[in-house]
């Protein structure tokens, strides 16, 4: 296979991972902010709706998911520094030798 073939093969994988982590996580973060605003009510929303506890809880759950994603990223950086990588073969990320 030529260099162009390898590059395109790598590119679409990077694009897919990028969309899930690089666009998906910020989108979840945005939903989290929206939920917090819903929870806070009043000044936080253009509609000045009444505060709703459920929104606050949901917001923090969404933030927790985002933080897990970021931790995964940090683990990957640290692991690759030590010549390891993260495998998704068992669905749950596990640290394996490169």
């Amino acid at each position: 296979m030529s260099n162009l073939g390898f590059a395109l093969e790598g590119a679409w994988k990077v694009l897919a991972a990028g969309l899930v982590l690089g666009a998906g996580l910020p989108a979840l973060f945005a939903l989290g902010i929206r939920s917090l605003a819903w929870g806070a009510g009043g000044e936080a929303e253009d509609s000045h709706a009444r505060p709703n506890q459920f929104g606050t809880v949901l917001g923090y759950v969404l933030f927790a998911i985002v933080i897990l994603g970021v931790l995964l990223g940090i683990t990957f950086i640290v692991a690759s520094g030590f010549g390891k990588t993260i495998s998704f073969d068992h669905i749950f990320p596990t640290i394996v030798d490169k």
Partner: peptide, 13 residues
């Protein structure tokens, strides 16, 4: 976020 994800995914691959 896009930069971080693309950089990390690329070095992973």
């Amino acid at each position: 976020s896009s930069s971080a994800a693309v950089i990390l995914a690329s070095s992973h691959l």
